[in-house]
């Protein structure tokens, strides 16, 4: 029974952390954008503008709720709900750190250590498109529909290359699909990124595309499609869309850290766990994971404020003609090397 209590608390904490990080990602995005453009960014709400996300949230809640007359009412409401739901569901399989210990019992910092963890993330990601598609279609607006169609075709295209680069990871980590196993196999500095640099690059690009971030933010490109799939949305339903996107970014960063940068592993972890109490080491390992995650969130923003948007045909060409063949070649080479050298 205790384990259920612990898992419930973990789920709640993860929920709050996801929301908190998403909220402060919006703040960080504006700050990073400002700093990269020699500006200061929001600094009026609270010290250094730290209360800005709260002000934004209050604004979102107080805005007028508009449901277009000719829209499909239920689907219109369902869209952002699905998007938010799938965004929050992904964090269930991620190992957040070494197990905590209370009264001699170990509690793994992972909600569900299922043996298909990686596939679960892929599955939830692919279901997330429905939120965008349903929302975009139900708006009964051509820009929203165009945005929805762009989003779905983009996500389907980049999922393939993403899956292929994940397969290379599975090949070098004993074929286990469990994320905790993949993280454990990267002890010390034995990170997958050193064995799979090409796979990492492909995965990173695909993660950008899956999270709808610049240079792949065509589904919501402001200059051509007004707001893309959320053109007709207002108030907190728009907030859900925007929020879920930031949660997606957070989860993408976490998955990148877990698959390629050793998750909570860091050099010297073995030494620390031999000399320090288990709980302290556990907290340090959580800190290590979050350091990596924050770096990648910053990287996402850094790229956004550097590179302009792709054209849509360029995006499709990149996905199908460059990334997919490259990832298949990467997979074949990885498999060949493993078989040839009997690793």
């Amino acid at each position: 029974m205790e384990i259920i209590l612990f898992k419930t608390i973990l789920v709640l904490v993860l929920f709050l952390i996801s929301l908190g990080i998403a909220a402060y990602s919006t703040y960080a995005e504006r700050k990073v954008a400002a700093f990269l453009q020699d500006r200061i960014g929001p600094d009026r709400a609270g010290p250094f503008g730290l209360l800005q996300p709260i002000a934004d949230g209050v604004k979102m809640f107080l805005k007028e709720e508009i449901i277009p007359n000719h829209s499909n009412r239920w689907l219109f409401i369902l869209g952002p709900c699905i998007f938010m739901l799938t965004a929050l569901m992904t964090s269930a399989v991620i190992p957040w750190g070494l197990p905590l210990e209370f009264d001699g019992t170990k509690y793994a910092l992972q909600v569900a250590d299922i043996n298909i963890g990686v596939l679960y993330i892929m599955g939830v990601l692919s279901v997330g498109v429905y939120g965008i598609m349903i929302g975009g279609w139900a708006s009964n607006n051509k820009y929203a529909l165009l945005g929805a169609i762009r989003a779905s075709s983009q996500m389907i295209s980049y999922e393939l290359a993403m899956g292929m680069s994940i397969i290379s990871i599975l090949l070098i980590s004993d074929g286990s699909l469990s994320l905790s196993h993949i993280v454990e196999s990267q002890k010390g500095m034995n990170w997958n990124v050193f064995y799979q640099p090409l796979g990492f690059l492909i995965f990173l690009i695909c993660a950008f595309a899956e999270a709808n971030r610049t240079p792949f933010d065509l589904p919501e490109s402001e200059s051509e499609l007004i707001g893309g799939y959320h053109t007709e949305y207002s108030s907190m339903k728009l907030g859900l869309f925007l929020f879920a996107e930031y949660i997606n970014m957070f989860i993408s960063s976490t998955v990148i850290s877990c698959l390629y940068f050793g998750g909570y592993q860091f050099p010297g972890l073995a030494y620390l766990s031999a000399h320090l109490p288990a709980n302290v080491v556990s907290i340090i390992s959580i800190g290590a994971l979050f350091t990596k995650v924050f770096f990648f969130i910053f990287f996402f923003m850094w790229v956004r404020w550097t590179i302009p948007r792709f054209r849509y045909d360029q995006l499709m060409r990149l996905g199908w003609q460059v990334l997919l063949p490259l990832s298949i070649a990467n997979m074949l080479i990885t498999g060949g090397v493993i078989t040839f050298f009997n690793l």
Binding site: I114, N115, I116, L119, Y120, M122, G123, L125, S126, V127, V129, Y130, M133, W137, L145, A148, I149, S152, S153, M155, I156, E159, L177
Partner: peptide
């Protein structure tokens, strides 16, 4: 059969039905 379940979701719900929805919407 978790593997089958998740593959079912990825392939059918995640890819094929998206294409179907795509066509119907267009």
């Amino acid at each position: 059969a978790q593997f089958l379940a998740i593959i079912h979701i990825i392939v059918y719900a995640g890819a094929i039905m998206v294409l179907m929805l795509f066509t119907v919407m267009l």
